[in-house]
Structure formats: structure tokens, C-alpha cells
């Protein structure tokens, strides 16, 4: 089914309503203060209330009967969601594995995965790019810029 902008607005409104309410409630755990003497919770509380109010306005507005522009489907191609999800997972995996496998190995695996599986390249090209890329990144960041990157249990 084709979605209109009003569907999108409704989902976003519910998200921001939750965010606003959350901040307003959380701000109450620190001192809000008064107009005379605003405390650390002053801005978070009022900004949370304002955000929630605006979210409600957006939500109500999304029920208005008018010619909402049709939006193209969320993902432009059938396989898009797989690539988007895989890329995000690769980023998260990089963050998790970095302290254990060390910079060089993690970078090598990260490059192999993305080059081979997102827009599939042949293995020859994948290995060439990943080996050269990981080696160049190591030279640049560790040997040249002397960035303190984790070495991992392998020790390099």
C-alpha cells in the first residue's frame, strides 16, 4: 500500500511525544527550580513539555483531511533493507570486536564483509581491497598518526 506523508508524521509524532514525556519526567529527578531561580532541571523539563505539545500538534494535524502527498515506498528497492541492516550490523560488530581482535584484524574483516556482501564484488577484488585497505589504514593511523588503537589479544 502506498503511504502518504500523514502516516510518516503520525509515527514520528508518537516517537517525539514519548521522548518529550520521558525528558519531562526525568527532569523532575533533578531540581527544576522556579522562574526566579531556575535549576538544572528547568530547561529539560520545559523543553520536554514543549516537545510533547508539538508532537501532539503534529499528531492531530496528521488526521487532517487534505491531499497528503504520496511518498515513495520506504525502501527504493526490494533488497535495500538487507543492505541497510547489514551495514548497521557491521558498524555495531566493529564496535564490539575492536577491543578483542585489535584494529588491524577487525578492520580487515569489516572491509571484507562490506565489499563482498553489500554490493557484491568478486573474491579477488574483495581480498585485494581489504588487504591493501587494512594495511594502509594501519600504516596511516598507527604508524604515522600514532593513534592509540586497541591491539587485541593477537598483539597487533
Amino acid at each position: 500500500m502506498e503511504k502518504t506523508q500523514s502516516h510518516y508524521n503520525r509515527i514520528a509524532a508518537i516517537f517525539f511525544l514519548a521522548v518529550g514525556v520521558f525528558f519531562a519526567l526525568y527532569a523532575r529527578t533533578v531540581e527544576i527550580g522556579s522562574w526566579n531561580e531556575p535549576g538544572p532541571g528547568f530547561l529539560p523539563f520545559w523543553a520536554g513539555v514543549v516537545l510533547a505539545a508539538m508532537a501532539v500538534a503534529l499528531l492531530l494535524g496528521s488526521f487532517a483531511r487534505k491531499a497528503w502527498p504520496l511518498r515513495p515506498s520506504f525502501f527504493p528497492q526490494a533488497g535495500s533493507w538487507k543492505r541497510v541492516l547489514a551495514t548497521f550490523l557491521a558498524l555495531i560488530a566493529y564496535n564490539l570486536f575492536l577491543p578483542y581482535f585489535g584494529f588491524t584484524v577487525t578492520t580487515f574483516l569489516f572491509l571484507i564483509f562490506l565489499v563482498r556482501f553489500i554490493f557484491p564484488q568478486n573474491w579477488m577484488r574483495t581480498l585485494l581491497v581489504s588487504v591493501l585497505g587494512a594495511a594502509a589504514a594501519r600504516l596511516l593511523f598507527i604508524n604515522f598518526l600514532e593513534t592509540q588503537l586497541p591491539k587485541g589479544f593477537l598483539g597487533f
Partner: peptide, 24 residues
């Protein structure tokens, strides 16, 4: 080609942020 380029852009983002405070 972009398929070769984008992993490196991501890599730069990861290392760039990490090297700020060495914080995962």
C-alpha cells in the same frame, strides 16, 4: 566505484570518533 569507496568512509568515521577520547 562507490562499492569500494563507502566502507572506507565508514572506517574513517569509526576511527575519527574513537580517536577523540578512545571511547567505544
Amino acid at each position: 566505484p562507490y562499492p569500494i569507496l563507502f566502507p572506507f568512509i565508514l572506517l574513517f568515521c569509526l576511527i575519527g570518533v574513537y580517536s577523540l577520547n578512545y571511547s567505544l
